[in-house]
Design a protein around this nucleic acid. Structure first.
Length: 420
DNA sequence: TCTGGGGTCCTAGGACCC
DNA sequence: TCTGGGGTCCTAGGACCC
């Protein structure tokens, strides 16, 4: 019988902010998306006040002012680094683990020889908290889906020290109490459909007819049903599979109809995307670009355009990718339209080592060394210290970040000082 | 004034081939 | 009078995740 644990950091972004600003403890905090647009994370105090997840900032202004809520822009440099510290501790404790997201990790506890799984997890939890300052919850079950549900219980019952085990004896009671929409893999549409058919709880869904589920929800829904029955359909992926695509897309701070402005955005997104791809040791063969208007703006005629170019040789050279992105951009650009969002997608990825350099390949002409040098300089002096030519025009697209905390752990100037 | 970004997987439908 | 069937590949779009 398989045993999975899901370790989930509690209110992760808010917890990261608190580690370096302890006075924020017990205060309501919200973290904003890029451009300070909407609320993507909340501390438990902010949840209690009733600030909704995903709400645009302007709609929560009243609550924020009334309760003195602390507002922060997303600080991914900080969150990414804190995440790596947490994951390091987990992977040292358990050989088989899968980093599922920035704040979640599945553990394979199958071959763990300990007298009491719950106690062992409580120790692990204490270790993470002591070494990183991040509180976590741990849920344990026979499948990933069950460990997810167990994790919700672990969070809901803080008295139990943040650990909850779903055993074969307790599984029915747990599933009975779990609303169908809380099940991993059942989204808004799926839960609406199921509730319409009278399926309200995870238990009811578990006991549904296979054919009925297959017909209504496809193989994905069927897998979820099996996982609820304790039959693992999703294995632990301890070796991260190679990415099939990588991208950089952004909403602009303000809409822009200026060709140079939007072109600069595309250029910088292409450069960022190719940096990410190089970091993963990959090359791409297809470069796709899209630009579009603000879909929330009712006064704007909606417009969206997208096109792609297939390169002759797969590459990870910024110059080749940026040049391709700009050619695609020229094909899709239409004037007289106020654009609000753009993106560059790199597709058909493969491992850089597997690709034979062509005769006229940039990598032969010293491109590899040049890219390495650029990445090295940017790694040392900060992202964007060296970049391809772009005229800093109106720059309506540049991201708004008005409530950004320091990058405490990844930038020399931002290291916190302790007073004696 | 003001509504995120980065992914994966599945499905349906069309083109094309034998 | 009467318009096959099956396989593959590609693409677009949608659902879902965090």
């Amino acid at each position: 019988m398989a045993t999975f644990a899901l370790v989930d950091c509690n209110n992760f972004y808010a917890s990261c902010e608190r580690v370096f600003e302890p006075k924020l403890k017990h205060r309501p905090i919200v973290i904003l998306s890029n451009n300070d647009g909407c609320i993507v994370a909340r501390s438990s105090e902010a949840k209690e006040i009733g600030i909704p997840m995903g709400a645009p900032l302007f709609k929560a202004r009243g609550l924020i002012r009334r309760h003195g809520v602390v507002v922060r822009s997303s600080n991914y440099a900080l969150y990414g680094d804190m995440s790596a510290r947490v994951m390091d501790i987990l992977s040292a404790a358990v050989p088989n683990c899968e980093v599922y997201s920035i704040d979640e990790c599945f553990l394979d506890l199958d071959h763990l020889c300990v007298p009491n799984l719950g106690d062992w997890c409580r120790d692990l939890r204490r270790q993470v908290l002591q070494c990183t300052g991040i509180p976590v919850s741990i849920g344990i079950g026979q499948t990933k889906t069950l460990s997810k549900i167990a994790n919700k219980y672990a969070k809901a019952t803080p008295g139990d020290d943040g650990v909850f085990v779903i055993s074969p004896e307790t599984v029915e009671a747990c599933l009975y109490q779990t609303p169908i929409g809380d099940v991993w893999g059942i989204g808004r549409r799926g839960s609406k459909m199921l509730i319409g058919k009278g399926v309200h709880s995870a238990l009811h869904f578990r006991d549904s007819d296979d054919r009925w589920v297959r017909q209504r929800m496809g193989v994905v829904g069927l897998r979820t049903v099996h996982e609820l029955r304790g039959i693992p359909c999703s294995e632990l992926e301890d070796i991260a599979p190679a990415k099939q695509a990588t991208c950089c897309t952004r909403t602009f701070a303000r809409a822009s109809a200026d060709m140079v402005d939007v072109k600069n955005a595309v250029l910088s997104y292409a450069e960022r995307a190719v940096e990410k791809m190089r970091h993963a040791g990959q090359v791409c063969r297809v470069v796709q670009v899209f630009i579009r208007t603000d879909r929330h703006d009712d006064h704007e005629q909606p417009y969206s355009a997208s096109a792609l170019e297939t390169l002759i040789t797969p590459t990870n050279d910024s110059r080749a990718v940026v040049a391709a992105a700009l050619r695609v951009f020229a094909r899709i650009w239409r004037s007289g339209i106020r654009y609000r969002k753009a993106g560059v997608l790199l597709l058909d990825l493969s491992a850089a080592d597997d690709v034979m350099p062509g005769l006229l390949d940039d990598r032969r002409a010293g491109g590899d060394a040049l890219m390495k040098a650029i990445d090295h300089v940017n790694g040392r002096f900060g992202r964007g210290s060296v970049h391809l030519g772009l005229s800093d025009h109106a720059a309506a697209w540049r991201m708004r970040q008005e409530h950004l905390s320091p990058r405490y752990t990844t930038r020399w100037q931002d290291i916190p000082r302790a007073r004696l």
